[in-house]
Amino acid sequence: MTELTTTKADPVSVSRRTFIGGAAAVATVTLAPGITVVAYGSDGEDKLVKGARWGLLIDVNKCPQSCNACVTACSNEHGWEDTGNPLTDAQWIRKVDIKDMKTGLEQSLPVMCQHCETPPCADVCPTGASFRRGDGIVLVDKHLCIGCRYCMMACPYQARSFIHEPLTGQKPYSPRGKGTVESCTLCVHRVDVGRIPACVEACDGTGNGAMIFGNMNDPESEIAKRIAQYPSTQIRADLGLDPGVRYTNL
């Protein structure tokens, strides 16, 4: 608590902010079945960039309907996949095809957790498992999630998935498990070591360059310059949630 490094961090966020972050020193004590106490080394607290608000800017004009690279990259990175049960399979990011009913204009865009400034999922979570890190990344603490699914009722973006089946072979940096809720982590394990999210990297790889990741609070960052210079929109802006994911040409 004494090593607060962000201006916006609240106590709850700070104490849990590195649970996914792959901190170096980890001690685990199992108290009883299902209850595990995990203590992380203090180095994890240094990973929050002071005053940061991590976000994405997605240019819908540069996102072809046929391209699914961001979705595939996320699936590979975190290990969620199509098991042949589309109703219950997890999807952290999906391509949504939209058509203006008046004009017929068709567009396609990726939708994932919008990493709200005031996330309804975190508001409704009874145990505080859903939380927002000081740098704006919204996460689920898999040790606190009881699987009540109220966050899924509350999320306006349908961004969350419940794990309906036993899982095996999870990635060490992306904890997942039956009976808990999960969603896009903005690749927090990458962000904490200075890398960009897998979806953005994949989008760059296609040459489309539709996604920009960065610190929206840093006036020198590309994302901050873009949103300052060109109009951008938020999905369900009427809700006033101030999402960290913005879209242009939508």
Partner: peptide, 25 residues
């Protein structure tokens, strides 16, 4: 019906007081 019913102890020890669910407990 919880996804992790054995964690009921978590629901009784960790509270987010902004949640109406927590109030309901």
């Amino acid at each position: 019906d919880l996804g992790r019913p054995e964690r009921i102890i978590v629901a009784m020890t960790a509270y987010n007081f902004k949640s109406i669910f927590a109030w309901n407990i």
